[in-house]
Design a binder for these strands. Structure first.
Lengths: 347, 347
DNA sequence: TTGAAAGCGGTACCAA
DNA sequence: TTGGTACCGCTTTCAA
């Protein structure tokens, strides 16, 4: 683990001062073209790579950004957003020589502490905020800490620079499709309480139904996990007049709900239509295949990283909005069976 | 972003030298008990957190370790190992004040380059190696770079310190169960060629069948993705005498295979039994529920992190083996239908 | 037990 | 265009 070669070695070998080496490497003015060429050649020959440690201490930059994932481990393990988002972030960071520091926290409190430490010990230059809550305590925290941050899918009024993908169009169009098929009793399996997108999705679901002159069906909150979807089934479907369709706030919950419905003797889609949200790959391979709303976490990650880097560069940044979500109609959504309790008119 | 408070402030406030502050904070001898207490009290009052930058430069430690994930983005997005492994790693790192630097690479070559850079610019003190190939070029690379590393599920002969979870017991027991149910024509949907665990799983599948006096069925290689499982269906099942059971090297491929079989008019489990590997949560909620082998990526991650930290501390480390995998028998595996081509003896 | 001072590997200012 | 040099914030000798 000897990295014997430092800027001093390069300077000596090229017979210049370290100041010149630094300037040459960083493409700063003040070095003649030929000196610069000589220095770079020597650096290359010696295999010199500037040490991040020295550079960080001196330059006041960690060349790293942070992401704290805050959710229960079990949920996280199958989370569809996570990996794709990070892949998008990484694709941008890599080109700029930045690294991603990933941390996980099981609780709100733990996550707060991780952010605080990352800022205090200067491990990162900025962070991403995902899973935004309506009144998110991390926003004032980061302001106090002076740590640059980019919020992902935050509320429009959020004071932080934000990147967003509009959930509404895809979901709205999906629920409209549900209504168009003839469903009049449509329930909602919502996400975790308090999260912004949980509210957004609930609001859209409700508004489409109301606009269609229908009464919104029951709402049950889950936590995005398959397990929570399964658990929600009895509460959602056990009544005397169960809904004919359930719009779920995540694909995993939708899968769980299908499973839970099956345990109650209800078949999807013949007895019940179910839709998800996220567009996880596996949804297309299930039986029935899962109707859902396709999201683009990878592009969101890339946009978030670009915004954060721009912020760190001191550029003015504006909120970014990537293309909206789109509905994906598949087998788990069909027209409802004719209701038996309401006899046909022409009898 | 002013962290005005440095070791100098603490030293001044406590009226001691910075050397004493450093010694006190790091629990080193050479400071009297009362001086130490006073220093710590002042540090606490001032809210001083030692800067990683100064510490790293001086102490020759980055207090970070790296993980380069090397797989196609699409596969990664639904990878069941990934998130859980990282969660396990993080749970250990966090307690020691270490951070995880996560990088992604789409190709072998890109991954190699990321490892090289991480070592050369001293961003991390050590790395994890996952998805070990039989002759893994990263092993000599890291040796040359002098970067400490821990291998995950490597070959027994691997020169690197390793943590492993034995795949064999769970899979062996599962295949035995398949045979015991009466399947005599059992195929295998293997993982990516060249990976160590792909070979291991293939070998176990084969040996159980051979030991039972059966001829191993066809083998098709996939890439662990759902999509690849679906694509494998025709090759695996389209022959004149399709197998009655397929043992898959991953749950996602198993799900894809079930889907692909359905497209060929084959129902699981009535026409075909399918088993997976990994034990992803969603498997228990599918129809039919997925028979699989449960793995423990989280504990593997924790063990890997502990081993790596020990290695960085200069301690002697021995390979770690966590508890073996276990089979999980569920609905996708049933006894084969009586073969029609072989008439019952008692006719 | 304490403190002064020399690094660690860069960046950047200021003279020459 | 160059080189000398003072930091950046901490760790770690080595004297006092």
């Amino acid at each position: 683990m000897r990295s014997r070669v430092t800027i001093l070695d390069v300077a000596a070998e090229a017979q210049v001062s370290i100041a010149s080496v630094s300037a040459a490497l960083n493409d700063r003015p003040g070095v003649s073209t030929e000196t610069r060429a000589r220095i770079l050649a020597v650096a290359d020959r010696l295999g010199w790579v500037p040490s991040l440690r020295g550079r960080s201490l001196s330059g006041k930059r960690a060349y790293a950004v942070g992401l704290v994932l805050e959710r229960a481990t079990t949920v996280l393990e199958s989370d569809p957003f996570f990996a794709a988002f990070i892949a998008g972030v990484e694709s941008v960071l890599e080109r700029r020589g930045y690294a991603l520091v990933l941390q996980m926290a099981g609780t709100h409190k733990a996550a707060t502490e991780r952010y605080r430490r990352m800022a205090l010990d200067h491990r990162v230059d900025g962070v991403f905020l995902t899973d935004m809550a309506a009144t998110d305590p991390r926003v004032p925290l980061l302001r106090d800490l002076g740590l640059p941050a980019v919020a992902v899918n935050s509320d429009p009024g959020c004071e932080l620079p934000s990147v967003r993908q509009d959930h509404l169009p895809g979901l709205r169009s999906l629920v409209e499709q549900v209504v168009a098929l003839g469903h009049s009793d449509v329930a909602h399996l919502a996400g975790r309480r308090g999260l912004i997108h949980t509210r957004q999705r609930l609001a859209v679901w409700r508004s489409v139904l109301v606009d269609a002159g229908l009464r919104p069906g029951p709402v049950v909150y889950g936590d995005f996990s398959t397990e929570s979807g399964s658990r929600a089934a009895p509460r959602l479907l056990a009544g005397p007049t169960p809904p004919s369709a359930v719009v779920c706030a995540s694909d995993l919950m939708a899968v769980g709900l299908v499973s839970g419905a099956g345990a109650l003797g209800l078949d999807v889609p013949s007895d019940l239509s179910v839709t998800g949200f996220d567009g996880i790959e596996i949804g297309g391979f299930l039986r029935p295949s899962l109707t859902t709303v396709a999201t683009a976490p990878r592009r969101l990650g890339a946009a978030a990283a670009e915004t954060l880097l721009r912020l760190l560069d001191g550029d003015r940044v504006e909120d970014v909005e990537i293309e909206a979500t789109t509905p994906v109609l598949r087998g788990s959504l069909v027209a409802p069976r004719p209701t038996r309790s309401v006899p046909p008119r022409n009898v």
